[in-house]
Design a binder for these strands. Structure first.
Lengths: 159, 159
DNA sequence: GTCATACTACTCGGATAAGAACTGTCCGAGTGGGGTAGG
DNA sequence: CCTACCCCACTCGGACAGTTCTTATCCGAGTAGTATGAC
């Protein structure tokens, strides 16, 4: 799985702690964890294309969450970065086997493919059941000072 | 996920239908689905290293299952090909953040990492609950002629 | 006829390239704010 | 003093290289079977 997934999840989390209505630039989000700014920008663009973030150009621009954290699941973020295709690639191997028919969709017929999809569905279901708000609440319960310190860090990085 | 996973799963399944005690060469397993023989051989080597297959050199050599299909889970095969590491790479991003400590294992502390691991565990659990024997039984129920036709194919490919 | 031996063909195993995907970097288009000059 | 305009700095966005991982290929080490010759 792409490394950008980790960056995207943490960046979304940090954005959820930003001042309401405030846009945070990719440079500041990157400085938070000493990440390469231009590359993080690329990932944030993907999140914007997926409708998870809104991007604002120009001075005072940056990114902010496009909808409340309760409406953003971890699966949304993962799919935005990784793409919607399944991790297990069923290349229709049976099509090349004996008695294979080109017109058959072997993702539906192949038992191996079905089992792999079932497992992947369990993974997706788990990710879809957790929202950004859930994660944020857990973090705040364990480390109550996080929201304030995050806002402070952003303010400090504003130069 | 590597394409070799699909090849490995189907090859193991085909091996489970081979004559008991018969070793099938990588070339024949590859010809079954018109796969590149040398590369499939590489995947089969990984399965052998993982203890799923036994490899025999020389004439009349090849691969066969190292243990009965009831004792081989889909997870075993996936791990043998993909490696044991998690798909979600937690690079300890928090270590570089404010107040990060180098000695902390952030896979245990980071809430994001925990949620991702939980999802991945669900995936692994699903794969571990299905054995090669289960898949084989399902295939035989839907297509009763498969065992015989598979053996015929192997015999035909023996030249 | 039997046995030992050397040979040959066959298979796995790891070392070696080609290709694709991920990671990282750069510069241009667009935008909003602030300074400035005029009324 | 107020307003309109212009310039500039700032940010995203997509186009452009470097590196790692996946995919594919090849040749050598080892082995089992077989043919051959001697006894």
């Amino acid at each position: 799985m792409n490394e950008g997934v980790e960056w995207a999840l943490h960046s979304c989390l940090n954005l959820s702690w930003a001042e309401p209505g405030e846009a945070v630039t990719a440079a500041r989000l990157a400085a938070f964890y000493r990440l390469p700014a231009a590359y993080l920008n690329k990932q944030l663009q993907a999140l914007a294309r997926a409708g998870i973030l809104t991007s604002i150009s120009g001075p005072r621009g940056g990114f902010r969450l496009a909808r409340p954290p309760e409406k953003i699941t971890l699966l949304d973020v993962v799919v935005a970065i990784e793409g919607p295709q399944d991790a297990f690639r069923c290349e229709g191997i049976l099509r090349e086997g004996p008695g294979g028919r080109p017109e058959v969709d072997y993702r539906e017929v192949c038992v191996v493919s079905q089992e792999m999809r079932k497992a992947e569905l369990a993974w997706r279901r788990e990710l879809a059941s957790r929202t950004l708000a859930d994660v944020r609440a857990t973090v705040e319960r364990r480390h109550p000072g996080t929201p304030e310190s995050t806002r402070d860090r952003f303010a400090q990085l504003r130069t």
